[in-house]
Amino acid sequence: MAGTGVSGPLAVDTRSIPEMVLAAAEAALADAQTDFGNIDAVVTASVDLHDGLTASNIAVTEVVGAVMKPETRIAGDGLAAAAHAACQIWAGAYGTVLVVAHGKASMADQDSVEQWAWDPITIQPLGVGFTVAAGLQARAVMGEGDPEAALSRWATVASRRWQAVGVGSRPEDVLASPVTAAPLRALMAAPAADAAYAVVLTGEPQRRGPVLKGVGYDLDTHAPGDRDLASWAGLGRAFARACRVAGSDTGAAFDIVEASCRYPHEEELVAAAVPALADSDVAPSGGLYRGVAPVAAGLGRLVDTVDALRSGPPARALAHGTWGPAGQAHAVAILESAP
């Protein structure tokens, strides 16, 4: 991990997508003490639907320095883009790869945009957005248990995440906020945001950059009715794949975890899917509560993980990204401090 760069997150970034992406890419290159000329290939993550245009090739190719270079475009979370870049390097195809992800939620009403992400025959006519999917999932996670106990637990978790990002919402504030999709309350959700993230991956030895040891990802069925909503089994599979690449045991503990959980019930899904994380604080930085940029947030988790590894004692860390309705897809990266 040679360098990282961030632009945002902001509730509304009035800059264009190319400006946001360029700011993140330049910051990552500066952090890596390199420039566009030393980049062999680029992997970008974005989704046309969110951008309102054919995302990568119109808005991004030039500002990520990919003109007349190999650019791979990932229609998924930026952490999956980082996984592709790592595989390109491990395969020996390229030496240094720039990974960039962007999302600009303020451009359009997200619930309306997300309706278009569903099957056009069976679900779109019902007007379902991802918030509704999250409500269905929260209810499935709650199961037959005590609803008041679950709500209290989730309000406490959400409050802790808000506090970590400097927002003083108490558990009672969370519970008193309006119901969005029962049982979820408005303040249980991390806020949508505009952001771009960039990382420089290289096969060259780094003095201070953490080492990416393993990556894995997994896509489950799109329709929430085809999978067990009360489980993020796909995260478990992605994690197992990352461990195989890293050559590590799936039971080994992590010192730092940055999971992509937009709702508190998702933290319970993480703990159930990856028992090694059951006792971990999965979002010590506040995680997504600083702002969720669609399909970019997972790369933001990787950036936060790198920052934590650089600034702390030697450690082993995990970053997680997710995309699609109710956690359809998951990406995992396992990192260690620089030797």
Partner: peptide, 22 residues
């Protein structure tokens, strides 16, 4: 198998009209 009661505004994708809440 799972249920929710929705309070966020949603447009009917056929008519474009807001669906009555909740």
């Amino acid at each position: 198998e799972a249920w929710t009661v929705v309070h966020v505004p949603v447009l009917d994708s056929r008519t474009g009209a807001p669906r009555p809440l909740p």
